[in-house]
């Protein structure tokens, strides 16, 4: 079995609100899985559960076959050093300049010297289409799309084995979105990384995904190879990928 990440029966409620309800999912080594699903369906929560930022109420989460629920702080830190995460809102450290943001995992996590880390940060920034001059700016001085790309650079700077992308292309123009899609594909190839991405953007999904899974009401209602998503034979998936207001999914207009 070459499953890198396995979730079994994971449940999570916030107060009375059940977000994940017996979710199961697995990602093979070197594979790129894309999770699609409506807004508020718990996609970000799923990623955070795997990272241990949110503790699931029930269920098991394995990375490389090892149970990660209930890991101690130090073991968790060791596990996370193999992960990269792009947050939905970028979550850049606004007290640090851009280059230090990108180099953060290198300096604090791997103990690389600041000067060398800076050179590597500049290289990584170049990969996401940002010049070295951007490195000296602060996150608040960047546009939303640039922040996203810096977040992406930070996620891949440590060359992690497993990378999570939470909506990597939202807020980018179509050309840059495509550049980022290519970059994600390239990361997977070059690093041999296993990736788990979230997106609403179906063109992005079909470009980066090996497999696609759809999250609805706290569980995976469909999973299959990326090319099958357009004729999945599942009404829910059909409605979502074609973006129709009519169908089995009723959007809750009142939260």
């Amino acid at each position: 079995m070459t499953d890198k990440i396995t979730l079994e029966n994971v449940s999570k409620s916030f107060g009375r609100k059940t977000v994940l309800d017996g979710l199961s999912l697995s990602v093979e080594k070197g594979q790129s899985l894309v999770i699609i699903g409506g807004s508020g369906s718990g996609k970000s929560v799923t990623l955070k559960c795997i990272l241990g930022l949110i503790h699931p109420d029930r269920g098991s989460i394995k990375v490389d076959g090892r149970e990660t629920v209930g890991l101690s702080g130090r073991e968790r830190a060791r596990m996370l050093s193999r992960f990269g995460m792009l947050f939905q809102g970028a979550a850049l450290f606004d007290s640090l300049p851009v280059w230090e943001n990108v180099a953060f995992g290198l300096i604090e996590g791997q103990g690389i010297r600041r000067k060398e880390a800076r050179d590597r940060a500049v290289d990584t920034l170049a990969q996401v289409g940002l010049g070295a001059d951007v490195g000296d700016l602060f996150p608040s001085e960047l546009s939303g799309g640039m922040q996203k790309r810096v977040g992406l650079a930070r996620a891949i700077a440590t060359r992690p084995e497993i990378i999570f992308f939470d909506e990597p292309t939202t807020g980018l123009d179509p050309i840059m979105a495509d550049v980022i899609n290519d970059l994600i594909v390239k990361c997977v190839k070059d690093l041999g990384a296993t990736t788990l991405s979230i997106t609403h953007d179906m063109s992005s999904a079909s470009k980066i995904a090996d497999r696609i899974a759809m999250l609805y009401q706290g569980r995976m209602i469909w999973e299959g190879p990326a090319k099958d998503v357009w004729n999945s034979g599942n009404d829910y998936v059909d409605q979502f990928v074609h973006g129709r207001a009519d169908g089995p999914i009723r959007m809750a207009l009142r939260a």
Binding site: L80, F83, G84, Q88, F93, F104, E108, R154
Partner: peptide, 14 residues
């Protein structure tokens, strides 16, 4: 609230 604390965790920093 801007998830920077979460980001610290993911970068192996307590």
């Amino acid at each position: 609230v801007t998830e920077q604390v979460d980001a610290l965790y993911t970068l192996s920093t307590n």
